[in-house]
Amino acid sequence: MLFLIFFIAAIVVVISAIYLNRFGDVISKKSSLSGAVVGTFLIAGATSLPELTTSLTAVFIDNPDIAVGNMIGSNVFNLLILATVDIFYRKRRLFQRINHKENVPSAVIGLVFLTILIVSMLIPGTRSLFNIGLEMFLIVAIYIVAVKMMPSGEEEAEEVLEKDYSLRTGVIGFIIAAVIVFVFGSVLSISGDRLAQATGMDSSFVGSFLIAASTSLPELVAVLAAFRLANYNMAIGSILGSNLFNMQLLVVTDVLYRKGPIMASIGTSHIFTAILGVLMTLVIIYLLAKPRTSVQSQWRYAVPSLIITFLYFIITIAIY
Rank of each mutant, 00 (worst) to 15 (best):
V145S: 09
E155T: 04
F174G: 01
G110V: 02
A107F: 01
L111K: 09
T115W: 03
L129I: 08
I132Y: 00
E102I: 03
V108P: 14
G125M: 00
M121P: 09
E162C: 05
L111W: 15
M149V: 08
F113G: 02
S128D: 11
R168Q: 12
L129P: 06
V108K: 05
G173R: 04
L122Y: 07
I123P: 11
A107E: 05
M136F: 14
N131S: 12
L111S: 15
I175H: 04
L129M: 10
V108C: 09
E162V: 09
L138M: 14
I172R: 02
I175S: 04
L122N: 12
G133F: 03
E135L: 05
M149F: 15
L111V: 11
V119K: 04
V119W: 03
I176K: 00
M149L: 11
I123K: 15
E156Q: 08
L138N: 08
D164S: 11
P124A: 08
R127Y: 12
A178P: 10
S120C: 06
E102K: 03
F174Y: 13
P105I: 03
A107W: 04
A107Y: 01
L134Y: 14
G170Q: 02
I123L: 12
E162K: 06
I118K: 08
G110A: 05
K163S: 09
L134H: 13
A107K: 00
K163L: 12
S120I: 07
E102L: 06
